[in-house]
Design a protein around this nucleic acid. Structure first.
Lengths: 226, 226
DNA sequence: TGTTGTAAACTGGCATATCAGATTCAGATG
DNA sequence: CATCTGAATCTGATATGCCAGTTTACAACA
């Protein structure tokens, strides 16, 4: 059998496109999605669109009821709590592996990424509040965590973290609330903890980082939907 | 919109059926799957079968290449390692939450389940080596871990654990190798550790349990595919 | 004005047909 | 016997059309 990487199928393109539309705010939370309209818009039939929506549904970005409709899911605070429990588990494991397996070059890369992140979080609000800038910041934050996971050497863990859409929710609410406040050198200190050859310490530092993000997001939620 | 539970669709039935056929050995590892043949066999068209196979593909039980074919995936030892890294993360988190949130009744239930499991693992091989008996044992083991997760109070974590198919792989190789050896009171001692109101201890005990299972499975693998 | 009934419009689920690429195997060629 | 060849036969991907529920808009009526 041919194990070459599959060419980008229409289903895949639909998935990427719809996902981007949701994350970028083109499809705000709660928006109804019509398979037929969307298919016409994307220049394809409804089948690949349905495939994509099914994937997004299992991932929790979208919800669908038979013969009723599909819409962009509005995560509840209970959803957020649940997702963060999973994320705490996965990211702390990722931190353990990073502290055990990362090379000096990789550690340097992570430390630099952390510095960049902290700078952007410090200046971002003042300089540029556009959606594009916030989206870029969101992506960089995601990259920071994904690079840490990649350095752990287990693709399965990377995939599990990527499938956990807390950062996605984070971005959605960031967009709504324009919330980008963080303590000084927040990521910098985390990165330093990860580089100290102490898996338990790395685990704990990442747990604190994740829980800080969770509480921050829950505060935002309570303001948005009070 | 109507939020009632959806009726069992053909896609869902196809998913359950195919999954059961794989786990029960009706579709052995590596078997090619024809959408058309399977659809005729299940009395439906290829569309719901394709939906089901897509889900099973993202879950890793099945692999598919465009215009080539679909077959039951043979997990590699690298797959197994990766899955166990994720499982270690999720189950240790589950153990933490259990030690913090479980009620006395729930703890009693888990302790009893552990005793039953230990008995079956001790006697199972001697009494009954049928596939059905091994499958039942596998399901009970899975139930043990799922109940622990449920008592933690976070459905999202339960779902994440359920989506992690290490226990499934475990069953597949158990079937192939008839391996059911475990140390005396293996699950009993784990359950006792979970009930001591010490999240860190529970975390560690579960990590050891998971890693024991991983190494055991890797040994089996090295024998099977040496 | 407010309520109700009903039909049109819309939804996701599914069946069927077609397409292009991959595989396979009989038969020709050396 | 080994090797090449090409057509028949597979594969998954996709398009299209239909179906049976759900929602909605609007007219008829109180």
């Amino acid at each position: 059998m041919n194990r070459n990487p599959v060419a980008a199928s229409l289903s895949q393109r639909a998935y990427n496109d719809i996902r981007y539309r949701i994350l970028s705010g083109q499809l705000p939370l709660g928006t109804s999605i019509s398979r037929r309209t969307l298919a016409a818009d994307l220049g394809m039939s409804v089948v690949p669109v349905s495939d994509a929506l099914q994937r997004l549904s299992t991932e929790g970005l979208v919800e669908s009821w038979p013969r009723v409709g599909t819409r962009v899911r509005i995560p509840t605070s209970q959803d957020v709590r649940g997702h963060y429990v999973v994320r705490e588990a996965l990211e702390s494991q990722s931190a353990r592996l990073f502290s055990q397996k990362s090379t000096p070059e990789e550690r340097k890369e992570i430390l630099e990424l952390a510095e960049t992140l902290d700078q952007l979080y410090r200046n971002g609000n003042a300089d540029d509040e556009s959606k594009e800038a916030l989206f870029a910041l969101h992506q960089l934050h995601q990259q920071f965590h994904m690079r840490i996971a990649e350095c752990g050497g287990h693709p399965a863990l990377c995939q599990a973290i990527e499938n956990n859409h807390v950062l996605t929710f984070n971005w959605l609410y960031d967009t709504a609330a324009r919330r980008t406040k963080l303590p000084e050198r927040h990521h910098g200190r985390l990165a330093e903890s990860l580089c100290q050859d102490d898996p338990e310490k790395a685990d704990l530092a990442m747990r604190e980082h994740v829980i800080y993000g969770r509480d921050d997001l829950l505060r935002t939620l309570s303001v948005l939907f009070r």
